[in-house]
Nucleic acid binder design. Structure first.
Length: 940
RNA sequence: GCCGGGGUGGCGAAAUGGUAUACGCGCAAGACUUAAAAUCUUGUGGGAGUAAUUCUCUCGUGUGGGUCCGAGUCCCACCCUCGGCACCA
């Protein structure tokens, strides 16, 4: 009976052609223990992986019933991958595996888990790659998609392949365009002429977030500034909310369970600053008032020490200053006066500043340059005449683009004052009590302190002085408290080809007639929603030019259209949107991909209510301020429009570490990528998964080495042999097994459960290794129940191996014969019925699909309940007590657990030890520190 | 400069304030083998002692202090390193 069962399953699998080599024979393969080693069935990961991935796929094991609201939904999401040039590398697989283990664990805990996958294939990244290999981006996308999905299917993740999402699919980007339209309709999208970051190599504009150290984050070239008309999203309107929620300070009590470092990064990026805008009248030499300049400061308390004013070269007043004074630098004949001289200098300075790259500006950092305007700002507190300068150390992008200089209490201002020989006044005395004049940079006092030389502020501490001064300035009408943010509006448009066309139409006729969809955007109309998507046409001249003109702008057949407002000739917007817009909402799409109900919005409201916010989001910390911030913004906006009932998209975000190779992060640009394919081929997906997770804590990343990989492969082999040996012995062993093993197993269940929840996969694996070591030291076989428990613990980490072992245990279970045979026969039958028909009609026989799903649900190891431990087994009857003398460990003694908790018992036992006595002889014990069940320390 | 991680054997790393170095890699010796691979066994922080590898002592978690019966762990100062931000007023 027993052997018959085994033979039958092998013959079935063999007939399915899932076995492409002949197994030795059922009887020898399972008769490992005691048999000579050469006969043992060797673990062949290729066969096992192929077999089970096929069965899982065809039984729809990983496709949850999304509309069934009775299950506990768990949305386990990993960050949207973009298909890279060479495909998946080990660093990507690391992230996916760490996320997948958690998903599998949650599923075994009884949750209905959705773990979707898709591709973020629109955008510069993919486009640049297409240029590089000389293939059209649209053609390349198809190829990349195939390769990427093929690779992803082999890493053993429980991806739901029935609901993939690709950003370049028109059925997806029609909704990206829809989102843009909603932004426009709600006043959150606008056009503005702005100094933007321009990458001369990528030939496009970049968001501030995409500029790293003055260089393009994509290609590394130096970014320059360019004045262009662009589309923006008003993310700054949400700055306060974005900050509140990340800090957990919202009244509603939103509290994001996110990795702390990501919260800090977002907090800093949003960069809230409370301060005051102070208005200074500006006069010329003769005292005639010319204008007002408004300066932003967070330190109005120091304002009695203000001695100059500086405006940025891009400040509007600079333009006014030069206007009307038609002075050209080469008009040598023109009579020179002081005023024109200054104008020449200013013009020259502004032009030079414009030419300076960000790189140069950073490089000369502390060396201050600037030019005097011949004008003065009046400090109305004391009537002080503050010379007005233009300097590029002041940034137009922050505050008002104008700064009041307090050289005694700001190092940058000090540098500037020294350079231009400006007065330096001390108004704060710090903890060093130095109240002398400030003549060295070390004396510049920027921290806590007490006010002096400041009239009504004297003697106050700086915080109180700040409040007092704010109030004073506001009362006098000289200033107004404001909050500013480092966060800038989101630059959305790209003068590129490979993205969703921005769904807007501009009509000159309407503009002239002062008409438009929005009063502040005359001439602009959104594409009617029933005309979406605005398809990206297949064009040959898709490469961007140096002129900043989008490729689509050269195609009349694309941009010529009729105005939705008045019907006359109009033109389409030819810019496409930023890739980050594509990925800012994809998580909303996955659960609803197959829903017929989502008509007016990209997501089914009922499904969304059940499945979102995302329960667990796993990704790299490098997206702290890009993707994560944009997604939050979009979700908040959708919430405010009444389309979502939550305002934060990701309840939990877990930032994983990076895979290091040769001392640096694994990335294509560093040229140290390792392709997982060859490792999977050589060692199997399970071994690679285990190895990656064993390298170190998931939050910290790890150092990839292939020698260590072999060690993990060895362990997989040991599990295999141990299990087969146990299977061979099952008939001879009781279900109870050895008590010591049993205890160890219960400890293991506890340990693995806790570690996986904390994502300490490395220590969970180490504990499992310790367990197999222990089993090997105790005869090398496990009883049936213990083996099953161990396989269950292994399942999230090594899904293929676990499934193979699980099915084998079930086949040859020594339990009641009738039950066993019914189970396995049924499973055989189902496998048989599904396997040969792999490419035949998936949709035809729904009833048989359901039957299969049911069978798999009862039989697959991955749908078994997660094992529990019995705390009775955790109790040891002997405890080890450490004996210390003066804090130094001298002995360890074993005692009955009961006694180990009693001080006098432990003391007695400890004193009885010869070793301990050696240290106590001739000493008097002053006291004994006792930790019940653990330690006793004699202080002598 | 500011904000976050982190410095532990030859290497990746582990340790609720309580036996530092679990687990793995590497290395060494041995078993099996004609041989190799695979597999298995044993050993493996530095120094010292003894006839004594199942023995003992001593030093040891970046540096210097401190708290404590006891510190890798807590406190103070510093050094190094990785990541983020940065002329943000």
């Amino acid at each position: 009976m027993f052997l018959l069962e085994i033979r039958s399953i092998f013959s079935i699998l063999y007939s399915m052609e899932l076995y492409n080599h002949k197994p030795h024979s059922a009887s020898t393969s399972l008769k490992l223990r005691g048999a000579s080693r050469g006969e043992a069935e060797v673990y062949d990961h290729r066969i096992v992986e192929q077999r089970w991935s096929r069965v899982w796929r065809e039984t729809r094991l990983d496709t949850p019933r999304i509309e069934d609201v009775r299950g506990k939904p768990f949305y386990n999401l990993m960050m949207f991958p973009y298909p890279s040039a060479e495909g998946l590398h080990v660093g990507n697989m690391y992230a996916f595996t760490g996320s997948d283990i958690y998903g599998r664990f949650k599923r075994m805990q009884g949750y209905t888990v959705l773990e979707p996958i898709g591709l973020d294939g629109f955008g510069i990244h993919s486009e640049n790659y297409a240029f590089k290999i000389g293939r059209h981006p649209m053609d390349q996308a198809k190829i990349s998609e195939k390769n990427f999905y093929h690779q992803l299917s082999k890493i053993g993740a429980m991806f739901d392949w029935d609901r993939t999402v690709e950003t370049y699919d028109p059925s997806y980007y029609r909704w990206t365009q829809w989102l843009f339209i909603q932004m426009f309709k709600h006043g959150l999208a606008y056009r503005d002429k702005a100094e933007v970051n321009w990458c001369p190599s990528c030939k496009t504009v970049l968001a501030d977030e995409q500029v790293i150290d003055g260089k393009c984050e994509r290609c590394g070239n130096t970014v320059s500034k360019k004045l262009l008309e662009q589309w923006f999203f008003r993310i700054t309107a949400y700055a306060g909310k974005l900050l509140e929620n990340i800090d957990g300070s919202a009244r509603g009590g939103v509290n994001l369970d996110w990795s702390e470092k990501v919260k800090v990064a977002q907090h800093n990026w949003i960069g809230k600053k409370e301060g005051i805008n102070i208005v200074y009248p500006v006069v010329d030499e003769k005292g005639n008032k010319i204008t007002d300049i408004t300066c932003f400061t967070t330190r109005p308390d120091t304002n009695f020490g203000a001695t100059f004013v500086v405006i940025a070269p891009e400040h509007p007043f600079v333009g006014e200053l030069l206007k009307g004074k038609s002075v050209s630098s080469n008009s040598a004949k023109a009579p020179r006066n002081k005023e024109t001289d200054l104008a020449v200098q200013i013009r020259q300075y502004v032009e030079d500043a414009k030419k300076k790259t960000a790189e140069v500006r950073i490089a000369e950092s502390r060396k201050k340059t600037g030019v005097f305007t011949g004008l003065y700002g009046i400090n109305q507190l004391n009537g002080y005449r503050m010379p007005l300068y233009v300097s590029d150390f002041v940034l137009m992008g922050f505050g008002t683009g104008a700064v009041v200089g307090v050289p005694g209490h700001d190092k940058r201002d000090y540098d500037f004052a020294i350079q231009f020989d400006i007065d330096i006044k001390r108004v704060v005395v710090g903890s060093d009590s130095d109240s002398s004049d400030i003549s060295r940079v070390e004396q510049v006092q920027e921290d806590e302190g007490t006010m002096i030389n400041s009239e009504f502020l004297d003697g106050l501490d700086i915080h109180e002085a700040t409040q007092r001064m704010m109030h004073h300035l506001e009362t006098k009408g000289w200033g107004k408290p404001v909050t500013t943010y480092h966060l800038r509006d989101w630059l959305i448009s790209r003068q590129r080809y490979w993205g969703p066309p921005i769904p807007m139409i501009f009509c000159k006729t309407c503009e002239r007639a002062h008409k438009g969809e929005r009063d502040d955007m005359l001439g602009w109309w959104t594409v009617p929603e029933n005309q979406l998507p605005v398809l990206l046409p297949y064009i040959e001249d898709y490469k961007p030019g140096d002129d900043g003109i989008a490729p689509l702008a050269k195609h009349k057949e694309f941009y010529e259209t009729k105005c939705p407002g008045c019907g006359s000739d109009a033109i389409r917007e030819t810019d496409v949107s930023d890739t980050f817009l594509d990925s800012s909402w994809y998580f909303l799409r996955y659960p609803s991909t197959r829903s017929a109900r989502s008509g007016q919005v990209p997501f089914d409201s009922k499904i969304t209510q059940n499945w979102l916010p995302v329960h667990m989001y796993t990704g790299g910390a490098e997206h702290s301020v890009l993707h994560l911030l944009y997604s939050r913004f979009v979700t908040m906006a959708l919430h405010d429009w009444g389309l979502l009932d939550f305002e934060e998209p990701f309840a939990k975000f877990y930032a994983h570490g990076l895979v290091i190779k040769d001392g640096v992060k694994m990335s294509k640009s560093k040229g140290n990528v390792v392709n997982p394919d060859e490792y999977i081929a050589l060692y199997g997906a399970d071994a690679l998964r285990l190895y990656l997770m064993f390298m170190g804590p998931f939050s910290e990343g790890g150092d990839f080495r292939d020698t260590a990989m072999e060690g993990m492969s060895r362990w997989v082999g040991r599990i295999w042999r141990l299990s087969l040996a146990s299977l061979g012995d099952l008939g001879n062993l009781s279900d109870l097994g050895d008590l010591e093993i049993k205890k160890a197993l219960h400890r293991l269940v506890k340990k693995v459960t806790e570690d996986v929840e904390k994502r300490r996969y490395n220590t969970a694996i180490a504990a499992m290794m310790e367990f197999t070591n222990l089993v090997e030291d105790n005869g090398g076989v496990l009883d049936r129940e213990s083996l099953k428990t161990f396989i269950l613990l292994l399942a999230p980490f090594a899904p293929y191996l676990a499934e193979e072992l699980w099915q084998r245990v079930k086949m040859i279970s020594p339990g009641p014969a009738t039950r066993v045979s019914r189970d396995s026969l049924q499973f055989d039958r189902e496998i048989k019925s599904v396997a040969p028909s792999s490419n035949q009609s998936l949709q035809s026989e729904d009833s048989s699909q359901d039957a299969l799903a049911r069978v798999t649900r009862t039989n697959s190891v991955h749908l078994q309940p997660w094992p529990t431990f019995d705390s009775a087994f955790l109790v040891e009857d002997e405890a080890t007590i450490v004996v210390q003398v003066n804090g130094k460990t001298r002995e360890s003694i074993k005692l009955k657990t009961q006694n180990s908790k009693l001080k006098n018992e432990v003391e007695k036992a400890a004193q009885a030890s010869e070793k301990v006595q050696k240290y106590l002889v001739g000493q008097s014990v002053k006291k004994a520190i006792f930790v019940p069940g653990k330690l006793i320390n004699f202080v002598v």
